[in-house]
Amino acid sequence: MIAFAIKRFVQALGVMLVVALISFMMFRFVGDPVNQLVGVDTPPAERAALREALGLNDPVMLQFGRFVVKAAQFDFGISYQFKQPVASLIASRLPATLELSFVSALFALAVGVPMGVYTGLYRNTLLARGFLAVSLIGVSLPTFLIGILLIFAVSVNLGWLPSFGRGETVNLGGVWNTGLLTKSGLQSLILPSITLGLFQMTLIMRLVRGEMLEVLRTDYIKFARARGLSRRAINFGHALKNTLVPVITITGLQLGSIIAFAIITETVFQWPGMGLLFLQAVQNVDIPIMAAYLLLIAFLFVTINFIVDLLYVAVDPRIRIGGRTAG
């Protein structure tokens, strides 16, 4: 088990190094960094001094090494547009995005799994067909359209929920601004999380449904029925647990994409998160922010995958390494 974890950890490190290389190269491909930093009328001597000070004359490998070491210490340099350390810019935006993403994922799971189980068990009922039809809308409508429709219906016409922003936030320990503790913060969270989580919810629902249909046909479910177990024990004990491995995989991967693609939802709802920061960075060719964002998202993906791998082992004994073998 520990050997397995270490192996996965080393693999994760490898992935991070490759991503670091890509984001390092971004500085080169998008033009001379010095040009981004100084004005048009800066004399060549000053430019040369800056180039030397930034270490741009060193061998590429050395520069890359320096980039990696700094990145590992959360030092991503200074933003071109804000003239502030990138790390603190991201740290101030990160809580908003993470809260939005986790609430969306929670919404997708809490609604998607029961709906999937229901449509799998009672696939011919009217309600199940209704769920499936609605899920088609969730899969096919683009996120921004869902967001705008929700704003139009719930905020503009009904006036129930705020249409933009994060509401009031409470500062926790000086590092984390949370909107989860105030009424306006929670209210502001509802529409963006539904918008962001709807696609994942329908995906999870369809996945759980498919897996349930598959599992309910297996011999061990037939045998469980032949043993006279109760419907509850069969459906939720024996069947649902067997659908969990693919569901965990997809949820894990989707959590990564929820965070990465919160950009659109954040734009629609003017949510002060990383996505909005990233869009501004793209418009202003603010390479340090883009590079840091890329690294951060890769880090989140890798971490989530690592946790997912460990979760498999917890759910499915057959994946356990070094278990006792058949006798």
């Binding site: 297996t218 011999d219 061990y220 037939k222 045998f223 469980a224 029925r225 032949a226 043993r227 006279g228 177990l229 109760s230 419907r231 024996h238 647990k241 067997n242 759910v315 499915d316 004994p317 057959r318």
Partner: peptide
């Protein structure tokens, strides 16, 4: 009928490799 299954009628299926739930 469920209370009869398993209690008064037992059933054995063809494939022992797939008759048991792998996760329990």
């Amino acid at each position: 009928m469920r209370h009869i299954r398993g209690k008064r009628i037992g059933m054995i299926f063809q494939d022992p490799l797939t008759s048991l739930n792998p996760l329990y």
